[in-house]
Amino acid sequence: MSVETTTETAPVPKKGMNILFGLTLLGLLLFLWLLLGLSTTSFWTSNNISNLLRQGSMTAILAVGQTFVIITAGIDLSVGAVVGFSSVTVAWLLQHGVPLWPAMGITLLVGVAIGAFHAFGIVRMGLPAFIITLATLTSLRGIGLLVTNGSTISISDESFTNFSRADFLGIPSLFWMVIAVAIPAYIFLHLSRWGRYLFAVGSNSEAARLSGVNVNRTIYLAYILSSTCAAFVGLLLASRIGIGNATQAEGWELQAIASSVIGGTSLFGAVGSVHGPLLGAFILATINNGANLLNVNAFVQRIITGVLIIVIVYFDQLRRRGSR
C-alpha cells in the first residue's frame, strides 16, 4: 500500500536533461581532442583525424543498432560475429561471380535473417536474449570458418575496396556512412511511434501489450535492426581490409555495448538515445587513438577503457539519482 496524498509535488525533470548529458559527452570528446592536440604533434593531422573517424565509425554504427535492442531491455552479443560473418559472406559471393550490388544486398538480407532468428528464439522459444545471441556468436564464427576453411577470402573488386579509403568533401566516406545511419535511426527512435514502442516494451512489456502495442513485432524490429547494422558494418570492414575473414571484429560486441552505455543507455531498458552511443563510440576511438600516439602499452589501453566505462556510467548514475 502506498502513501496517498493529494498535495504531492513530483520532481520535475529539468528541461533537456538528455541534451545536457549529450553536451557533457561532447564536451568530454572535445576536451580529449584538445588535450591530445596539445600533448602530441601528430594528433591534429588530417591523416590521423581521418584514421580516427574511420576507427570510430564502425563501432558507432554497431552501437546504434545495439542501443535499439538494449532499450527493449535486451542485449545482442552477436554483433561482432555478424560483422565477421558478413565480411565472409560478401567476399564469398564476389568470389563466386555475384555482381557487387546484389552481393551487398544479399549480405544485408543475411543480417536481417540473423536478427529475425534472434527474435524468434526470444519470442517463440522463450530463450533469454543473452543466450540466443551468445549461441549465434559462436555458431556464426564456426560457419564462417567452415565456409572459408579457416582461411581468408580476398576481394579483388577495386570499386568495393576503394570505397572505404575514399573521402567526400574532405571527410572519410566511412564517417558519411555513420551520418547515413544516424539520421534515419534518429527519426525512427525519437520521432516515430515505433521508437516509442521500443521504450514501452523495455519499460513494461505487459503494460505495452495491454495498450495495444505488438510486443513481438517490436522485438523482431529491434533485433533485425541490430543485426542489419552489424551486417552493414561487415561490408564496410570487408571494404576496408579487402578480405572476408570470420575471425575479424573479435570483441566488437563489447565495444558496441560499452559505447552505448557510455552514451547513457540503461541496461535495464527504456533509457537511451541515438546521439549518446555515437559520442560514446568516438570517445572510445579517441582514447585508443590517443594512447597509440602517446605510445601507451596496448594492454594498458584496455585497462584505461575499462576504468573509463566505470567512471562515466557512475557519473551517469549519480546524475539520474540527482534528477529523481
Partner: peptide, 30 residues
C-alpha cells in the same frame, strides 16, 4: 505490473494506445 510503464513519462503512458492516430506517415505529430 500491467497498467503503466513506470520509468517512462506520464505523457508517453497516456499516448501509448493512440500513437498510430497521432502519427502522420512515418513520424508522430508532436
Amino acid at each position: 505490473d500491467q497498467g503503466l510503464c513506470l520509468n517512462l513519462p506520464i505523457g508517453l503512458n497516456i499516448n501509448l494506445p493512440v500513437f498510430d492516430r497521432l502519427s502522420r506517415g512515418l513520424t508522430i505529430n508532436r
